[in-house]
Every structure is written in C-alpha cells, then in structure tokens.
Design a protein around this nucleic acid. Structure first.
Length: 491
RNA sequence: GCGCUUCUAGCUCAAUCGGCAGAGCAACUGACUCUUAAUCAGUGGGUUCCGGGUUCGAUUCCCGGGGAGCGCACCA
C-alpha cells in the first residue's frame, strides 16, 4: 500500500486505529472468539419481550456494526449478522467502565466486526438489546461502508458485490434464491433417478451449440483448447455408455456480446433421458421449473421485481413453429415454401437476413411475427431441419425436426430435442455444418470424429433438454442477468 | 462491433453560458446514560476518469483513450 499520506483520509484514520489496537496488545483480527449465540438465535428466543426487561440471560455474539449512536455515558450500536438480521447492543459507563467505553468510542467504526458479551435485555423504548459487559474487535475494517441511505450506483454494486451484499437485503436474498433453485432442480432430478455428472470444460473441439468459443492454449499438450460452449456431446457419450438418465449443471462460455440477457459465462443445465423423447423432456422441463417456483416461493404465481406476476401454473401451451408463423404472417409457410418467398417476406417486413439456410429465414420470421407475443410459458414445437444439426427428423411431419424451445415472457428459456442418434445422418449433418463454416459462418459446428465414433457404438433413443440457469433466475425474479450472477464479468 | 448518454469527496448526487468546486450521509474535535438514518456546536477532506489541444485561465469547449449505462447487431 502507498504512503499513509496518500491514502484517503478515512482509510488513513482506520489504519491508525488498527495500529493502536495492535500496539495495545489486542488482536485486530482474532483467530477465534467464544461465541455462544447467533443474532438470529437471540431474536428467535425473545420475539416479544416487554419494555425495559432484564432477562438475566448472558450471551456472547458478534456482528458487523451498521449504525452507531454514541452519547456521553451510554452508547448504542446495531450489529448485523451475515443473514442480514440485526440486534442492538448497548455499552454503558457502569457496565464496561470509563476506560473501555472511551476506547470503544475511539476505536470502533461503522463496518467493523464487533464481539460482545452481555445480558439480553430490552431498552426503555422496548428494543431487544445486549447490555454489554465486555467487548472486543472481531475484525477491524479499513475502508468505510458506503452511505446506507442512498441506493448504490449500478457499477459500484457489481464491482463491489461484497459491499452490496453487506448493505442491500435484496442482494443477499437473490444469492439465497439462486441456491434454493439449484437445490430444487437437483431434488427433482434425484427423485426421477437422474444422476449428476461433470464433463470437460476444456475441449479440443467445441461442439453442441452454434456459438463462437473462447480459445486458450495448453502448454503441456502444446495444443489449442476451447472453453466449452455446451456439454451436449459429452453427455451423449455418457448415454452411449449406459448412463441412461444423466444431467449436468455447470458453466458454458460463449464469446458473444453481453447485454441484459447474455453473459459470456453462464450456468447451463442439460439433461438426457434414454428412451425419452422431446415430449417427455417438455414434461420434465415444466416439472423442474414448477417445482423450483413451489420450493422457493411456495407459489406458481411468481412476483417479479417490477411488480408483475409471472404465472407458471397449469399445463403449458404447445404450438407448432410453422403453424404459428403461418397464422401470424397471414400466409401459409411450410418447409417446402420457396426460399425466395421467405426472402421477399423478410424484405417486406424490413428484416435484414443474409444467410444461405431456409430454416434461418423461418426462425427469423418466426421471431419477428410470433415471439414477442408469447408471455405465458409456451413450448414452440418442430423446428427446421437445416438449423438443428443434432436433432432427429420428426416421426411424421416431413421437413422438420423434433425440437422445441420454451419461451417465458418473450425470452427463450429452454430447449429440448428428440436426439439424433443415427451415426450416418449425424455425419451428414456435420459435413453440412463444415461447409457453412468454410463459407465463413463463425458459429457453424465442427466435425467431431470421436463423438461420431461413440454414436457408432449405438446410442439408444434419447430425449434431451437444456436450460439456462441464469435465465431461469431471471424468469423467477424479473432481474437482469447481472443481478442473478453474484460476480458477473466486469472489465 | 456501431450509435447515444455518462464519469465530480469514502458513498449518493449538485454546480460551472470558461473565472476560489458544493450538499446529505460518512470522517475528525467537543457536549450528551435510552438512542435507533440519534441530536447539537465546530473542523477537515477533491489529479472533477486518463492523455493531448484551444485559452490569460479548462472540471466545463475540442480531439484521442478508458470504464459504465441504454439502444442496435450477434447470441441463450
């Protein structure tokens, strides 16, 4: 650290206090403290004491000083636990003595962790308090907390999430909600006999999705490696190996733009079920999300940040992509519709699409005409074949594949397939992707020989689904993605 | 990647048609044994994001760079 002269005033003063504590033979950062109670335990034990009561109950506890009200001979402070619950402590001249009271006033700042021993009482105003017999510093804070009476700025919140978590209840709450949602998802899977695995994040060939990857280099293998854009191809290898019900919740990395709904690293859930198909995966997905809402909020009418309600109840609608598009566009559009007709329609609607694939036009037109109107949870079924290289052809409808996307409040929330398991067709699809890649599409998939070899050993009929965890949190809270991720990337 | 907006004290924000940079909270000194955003009196605290230019003088105007926010594009 720089010279004390150069430090901001408040930091220099606190550094000096730290020195004073150490010089007096005390510890500014003791390794352990004889704590007998948490703040929550005390509050739960005495929910409604009368005014001015002395319980005779001696406790010792610690917390962060959030408010201080120092007077001549009786000082008040509010301690906060990690849970956010708070309790008042009182230091009086007759209990702690003149020397320790002075020392308290001189050395203890807002933000410090304070340890106190004393009796549980209520003040003359009726507030549950600890009447302190003795105190010591539990951890000295060098930097001042921000002012608690204004909202923190957006950038400060994200760059100093540790401070945000101290001062803002909602920040702590979101962390807890996220943890509970993860737990609920895992419970649902466990009840359904799925097992959780972890597959490689460093890959020699990236696959399983259409996206630009992050590249890195292995010194040991002297080779280029990619951070995974999806776990899909490894989870399918697991299914080939007989892990019939398998899922993974872990991070994916995509070298794309970041905005309110996209983060370069994001948590992804993928699940595969042998002898399932895209219908059973739709049911599973609905169950996962509804269970999460019930487990975390106790309701399927989820209250969002802006006051709106996200209604997740009932059986979720299923609509066909081509049918819903035809209806909204007012013209019949099928997999056989000439691509020139699609291009003309796109031009007429002011869409700038320049892509060789028929399916790309269908998807873009669908997003233009239909997507925004899908507020209630809706499975959009049966996608174009040429944009879905890992999905099997529809069992009865020609020209489409058995794939759905789940939309909630206009956002893509999850996707599900009847997986393509025919190694010959899968090879053809990869070859088509390689041609796109050669034609300059940076997101086209690469041909993965090892994955094809796995399919050649026989993959059972399988349903698969993938869901963005951060997106799920957004649907359940109405927050932006950077608020659902505790430490989002900032430059 | 492109466009618009923004960056001032520890935090949240004012102000300047280009002329000594302000407030609230926080901090410091003092008073106060029932406060709770304690109160009262007083005090200090700034590379106005960085670099260059114009100017007697730039925090303000211009150019370049950086961070952030919003919109568009791409994507989940």
């Amino acid at each position: 650290m720089e010279d004390e002269q150069d430090l901001p005033e408040q930091i220099a003063i606190r550094m000096a206090k730290r020195e004073r504590i150490l010089a007096s033979g005390q510890d500014a950062y003791p390794v352990s403290l004889p704590i007998t109670r948490t703040i929550d335990q005390v509050k739960n034990k005495y929910p409604d004491l009368e005014i001015d009561v002395a319980t005779g109950d001696k406790v010792s506890l610690a917390g962060r000083v959030m408010f201080q009200r120092n007077t001549g001979k009786l000082c008040f402070a509010t301690l906060q636990a990690g849970t956010g619950s708070r309790i008042q402590v009182m230091l009086s001249l007759d209990k702690v003595g003149e020397e320790k009271l002075e020392e308290y006033k001189e050395l203890v700042d807002l933000g410090d962790h304070l340890f106190v021993e004393g009796e549980v009482i209520t003040s003359k105003r009726g507030e549950l308090s600890i009447l302190v017999d003795s105190w010591s510093i539990a951890a000295k804070t060098i930097r001042p907390l921000p002012n608690l009476h204004n909202e923190l700025g957006e950038e400060y919140r994200v760059r100093h999430r540790f401070v945000d978590l101290i001062v803002r209840d909602r920040a702590r709450e979101v962390v807890q909600i996220r943890s509970k949602v993860m737990q609920s998802l895992r419970n649902t899977f466990t009840k359904d006999d799925f097992i959780e695995v972890e597959t490689p994040m460093l890959q020699t060939i990236h696959g399983g999705a259409s996206a630009r990857p992050f590249k890195t280099h292995s010194n040991a293998f002297d080779t280029e490696l990619f951070l995974r854009i999806a776990p899909e191809l490894f989870l399918k290898r697991a299914v080939v190996g007989g892990i019939d019900r398998v899922y993974e919740i872990n991070r994916n990395f995509r070298n794309e733009g970041a905005d309110r709904t996209h983060s370069p690293e994001f948590a992804m859930l993928e699940a595969y079920e042998a002898y399932g198909d895209y219908n059973t995966m739709a049911e599973l997905t609905q169950t996962l999300i509804q269970n999460a809402a019930m487990d975390v909020f106790g309701t399927l009418q989820v209250q969002l940040e802006d006051g709106e309600v996200n209604d997740l109840s009932g059986e979720w609608a299923r609509v066909s992509m081509f049918e819903s598009l035809s209806e909204a566009a007012g013209v019949e559009i099928t997999p056989d519709t000439d691509i020139k007709v699609l291009k003309a329609l796109a031009d007429k609607e002011g869409l700038e699409i320049d892509h060789p694939l028929h399916g790309k036009y269908v998807e873009e037109l669908w997003e233009h005409f239909v997507k925004g109107g899908l507020q209630k949870p809706t499975f959009v079924m049966d996608f174009p074949v040429d944009t879905s290289p890992l999905v099997r052809d529809h069992r009865s409808k020609p020209g489409v594949v058995e794939k759905w996307d789940l939309y909630i409040r206009g956002y893509e929330q999850a996707t599900g397939y009847s997986e393509l398991v025919d190694p010959v067709i899968q090879r053809e699809r990869f070859v088509a992707q390689v041609k796109l890649s050669a034609a300059g599409d940076p997101e086209a998939m690469k041909l993965d020989e090892d994955f094809l070899k796995a399919l050649e050993f026989g993959m059972p009929p399988t349903g698969g689904m993938g869901m963005g965890i951060d997106r799920l949190l957004m649907s359940l809270t109405g927050l932006g993605i950077r608020e659902t991720i505790m430490f989002p990337l900032v430059k």
